[in-house]
């Protein structure tokens, strides 16, 4: 081994060891558990079975999967639609680009939990919005805005909007403004140029943004728990439940594996649509 290779191997080892111990082995354990039976006192037992997976197809759980996929899809579309004009604005704002971008990144790294709590503060029955509307005489009884699927959708969009803005901005910023001048010279209106040039050229960024939003939405647990109340059960809540109160680890493991499968699928899609990050 050359000294360079030895140094590289030495530098790689700690990260490889941590990832193997805290990602590889745990996922292998969960995969194994998903084929075992539920133990009498929680935990897992032999015999091996596929029953945990067939149970996922039960309409009760199938419905949870569909609802998670549907609400994530709505959140993804919502984020893309809201993020695109904002990314366009930042990309075309010249010298103040960095400031405008920082204003998007700031909430992205601020406590997610607290950002959700802020919406609880606004949406609850005695929250700011209901209090204000009642004071103005617009309504006489508080609107039920919290603890429903609408609140969950709002929380997802609010939480993951920055995830959508960043990749969209990255593609838009690279586009040559001369293309738009050329389009204008050839008689295209700005709206026309937007739909015929800017958006088609942004497709890689749009896909990346969609995946970056969709993946965490599908697995979300705290958004539905805090803003959805007990009424909105998504896959994340199902998994959490099996590992805590229901103590049905094999079933929770099977549901987790489906989530992981979806995440890996998305990852492969992303690799097609984006240049390598690592």
């Amino acid at each position: 081994m050359t000294p360079a290779n030895r140094l590289r191997a030495l530098f790689l080892t700690p990260a490889a060891a941590v990832m193997l111990a805290t990602l590889g082995v745990p996922l292998a354990i969960v995969a194994t558990y998903s084929f075992l039976s539920r133990g009498a006192y929680g935990g897992v037992e032999i015999p091996w079975t596929q029953e945990n997976y067939t149970r996922l197809l039960d309409p009760l759980y199938g419905g949870i999967f569909l609802r998670s996929a549907w609400i994530s899809l709505l959140a993804t579309v919502g984020c893309l639609v809201l993020a695109f004009p904002l990314a366009l604005f930042i990309a075309r704002s010249g010298a103040r680009k960095n400031l405008y971008l920082a204003l998007v990144i700031l909430p992205f790294w601020t406590s997610f939990l607290i950002r959700l709590y802020a919406w609880m503060f606004l949406l609850r029955d005695t929250g700011l919005i209901n209090t204000a509307l009642e004071a103005l005489g617009v309504i006489h009884a508080p609107l039920p805005m919290l603890y429903n699927e609408g609140a969950v959708l709002l929380g997802l969009i609010y939480g993951y909007l920055p995830f959508a803005v960043l990749p969209l901005y990255a593609t838009l910023e690279r586009q040559d403004p001369a293309l738009l001048d050329a389009a204008a010279d050839l008689g295209a209106t700005p709206v026309h140029a937007l739909f015929r040039i800017t958006i088609p050229l942004s497709m890689p960024g749009i896909w990346a943004a969609a995946i970056l939003v969709f993946v965490p939405c599908v697995g979300t647990y705290i958004v539905s728990d805090l803003l959805g109340g007990s009424k909105t059960v998504l896959i994340g809540n199902l998994v959490q439940n099996q590992f805590t109160s229901s103590r049905d680890w094999p079933f929770g493991a099977a549901a987790s594996l489906v989530l992981i499968g979806a995440a890996i699928g998305m990852l492969l899609l992303m690799r097609k649509s984006r240049e390598e990050l690592l």
Partner: peptide, 9 residues
Amino acid sequence: TPEIVTGIS
């Protein structure tokens, strides 16, 4: 990986 899956694994 969804956080909840990382957590339970």
